[in-house]
Nucleic acid binder design. Sequence first.
DNA 1: GGTCAGATTGACAACGTTGACTAGATTGGT
DNA 2: ACCAATCTAGTCAACGTTGTCAATCTGACC
Lengths: 345, 345
Amino acid sequence: MSKATIKDVARVAEVSLKTVSRVINNEPTVKEATRKKVLQAIEELRYQPDMSARNLRGNKSYAIALVYDNPNPYYVVDVQEGVLQACRELGYSLQIHPCNANDGDIVEELAELVRNSRLAGLVIAPPISEDDRVTDALYEQGIHLVRIISASKAPDGASPAVYVNDRAAAHAVTDHLIHKGHNNIAFLWGEEEHHSSGERFAGYRAALEEHGIPVQDSLVIEGSYSFDSGFQRANTLLSGDTPPSAIFGCNDEIAAGALAAAKSLGLRVPEDVAIAGFENSPFSKHAQPPLTTAAQSLGDIAKKAMMLLVSELRPQAVDGESASERKSEFIPELIARASTSAEAR
Amino acid sequence: MSKATIKDVARVAEVSLKTVSRVINNEPTVKEATRKKVLQAIEELRYQPDMSARNLRGNKSYAIALVYDNPNPYYVVDVQEGVLQACRELGYSLQIHPCNANDGDIVEELAELVRNSRLAGLVIAPPISEDDRVTDALYEQGIHLVRIISASKAPDGASPAVYVNDRAAAHAVTDHLIHKGHNNIAFLWGEEEHHSSGERFAGYRAALEEHGIPVQDSLVIEGSYSFDSGFQRANTLLSGDTPPSAIFGCNDEIAAGALAAAKSLGLRVPEDVAIAGFENSPFSKHAQPPLTTAAQSLGDIAKKAMMLLVSELRPQAVDGESASERKSEFIPELIARASTSAEAR
DNA sequence: GGTCAGATTGACAACGTTGACTAGATTGGT
DNA sequence: ACCAATCTAGTCAACGTTGTCAATCTGACC
C-alpha cells in the first residue's frame, strides 16, 4: 500500500489541495469546521507530509543538521537522540554531521552543507559551538543556527543558544564535597578547548574561595576527557606525598578512571578518597561505588535547542510566549551517590 | 550565491536538461564528447544534484537509514561515520534511526519509516540485524536492506549481508594466549542476544579444544558489554580460589573493566594476569598497559555494506565484478599489545 | 436591499529532477 | 543512393507541496 498524499486528504475531506496545505501549516485563515474535517481525513489516511516535496517547493526546508566534533561517544549519542526526538515532534528531518574542526575551513564546509542539502538550520554542539569566529561567520551568511554551549550567563551574539551552566553545577558539586569535610580537593580538567572544562573549574574555584579554602595548583591538573587520562592523573596524585582527600573529575570518564586508580592503589572509596564526576553518564550509576555526579538532561537541552531554532525559522509555528526567547539556561543537578558519602577523615 | 541547478549546467554545456541528467546518472547513451562537456560544466559550477527533487520524481530515492539498537556508543559512532562516508561517496543521504527492538512492533516501525521517509533501503546493525524474523519480514515486504552481522560463514537468507567472522578472530586471540603458555583462560561474555558474543565464545572454545585444553565452566561467565560488568566479573574471578592466568573479555570495555579489577587487587598485568579484549576501541590503545585486542575496521565494514545495498538498488551504478556479490566477509585482526606480553607463570 | 471589507477557499504555476516518448543523426547493407 | 536499424539528444509531463493571486462567501452597515 502506497503513501497517502495531500491529494487523497483533499478528496476525503472534500476541500481543495490548498486548504489541506493550510491546515497542515497551521495557517490561521481556515474555518474551524473545515479544519476539523481536514484533520479527521489526515487521521484517517495516516497522512504525513512528504519532506522531499516540501523542501523542493519553498525555499523553506524541513531538514536540519546536527554538527559536532566531540570526542565523547556517550555525549554524541545522547545529543543525537535528543535532537532526533525533537525533530520528530516538530516535523523535521535530521542529518548528522560529525566533523573535524581543525582540518580545512569549517565555516566553508558548513555553509556548503547548508546550501547543498537545503538545510533550514544547524544545531551545533560543543566545542565547535563555542568558537565565536565560526558561529558568527555562519550567522552573518544568513545561516540559521542554534548553539549548545557551556556558560554561566546568557552569551552575547546574535544567534540563539542554549547555555548549560556548568559553573553553577560544579559549584554545587564542590560545595557538597566541602560539606563532607574535604579541604584538599583535586580537580582534573578535560580538554581546554571545551568551555565546559573551564566553567567547571570556575565553579570549583568559586566554591573553594567562598569557604576560604585556597586553590592549590598542585591539585589542579590538565588532561583530557577520558578514562585513561583520569586514571593516570589520579594515580600520580594519590601515590604522591600529599594525596588529596577528594577528587573532582571534569566528567564521569575521568572520575571512573580516578576510581579505578584509587582501587588499584588499595584505597577505599569513599572512605579513603571521595570521587565525583560530571554528566551522569550511564556507567556512573553502576560503578562500584556509584559515582556522585551532576546530571544534565541532554534530551531536554537538545529539545530546547531545536525549539529555539524553529522559533527563528518559523515564528508562527511555536507558541507565542516562547517565540521571542532566544537564550535558554540549563543547570545540571547534583546527584550525590556513594562515591562521596563518607565524611573526610 | 544560490545553488546551481541542472538547468544552469545545461546552459553552460549547451545541451538539454535531459542530457545532463543522463550524464549524472551514468546512462550509457551519451557520446563521449558530450559527456565531457557536461562534466566540465558540472565541475565549473560545482553542481550537485538536489536530493529532494530526485527523491520526489522517481519512486527511486537516494536516502537510506541506519538502524541500530546497540548499547555501545563507541560502536554506534564508528558505524555511523563509516556509513556516512560511504553515503557521501555514493551520493546518498543518511538518516539515523536508533530504536528499541523490544518495545512495539519493530517490523512495522521500520516499514513505516521506509514509506514515510521515502527510503531506498536500510543498513541494519547488530543486534537487530541478527534477528531473522525481523529482516525476513522486511525483505518480504520488498524493503531493501543490508545486514551487518556476526557469523563464521555466509548466512542464508535472501538479503545481502556483511558478516564479521568474530569466531575466527576470537580463535586467533585465544591461540595467542595459549602460545603464551596460558591454559586457564577465563572468557567474559557480552549480551547473549548479540551473536558476536556467541561467535567469540565459539572461537575461544574451538581454540582451547584444538590444543586439548578443557573448557572450564567456572571460567566462562555471562554478563554485558560494559566496563562495570567486566570489572565485577573479573573481580570475582581473580579474588577466588583458582584465579585464571588470563582473561579474554568479549569486548574492550569488558577487558578495561577486568584490567581495572586486576589493578585494584594489586595484580600486575600482564605478569600476574593477561587480559585481552576485542574491537580495538580507542581507549584500548591508551590503557595501561595497552590492551591486546582484535581490530575490525568498522569504516570498511560499513562501506562494504553500503556497496552491497547499492548494488541491489541500482546494479548499473557499481562496477560489474562486484555487482552480483551479495555476502561479504570480514575477519578482525589480532592486535597483540602489552596486556598479554608476558609468558604465563 | 445593496455595498463593501474581511474572511475563507480555490486554481494554477513552480520548485529540480527523471521517465516515456519522439526526433534527428549516423551507420550498414543493399 | 536509399531504407532500416541504431545511436544520440531533445520535449514534455509528472512527482507532492506551497506561494500568488483571484474567486467566493459572510455579515455589518447605510
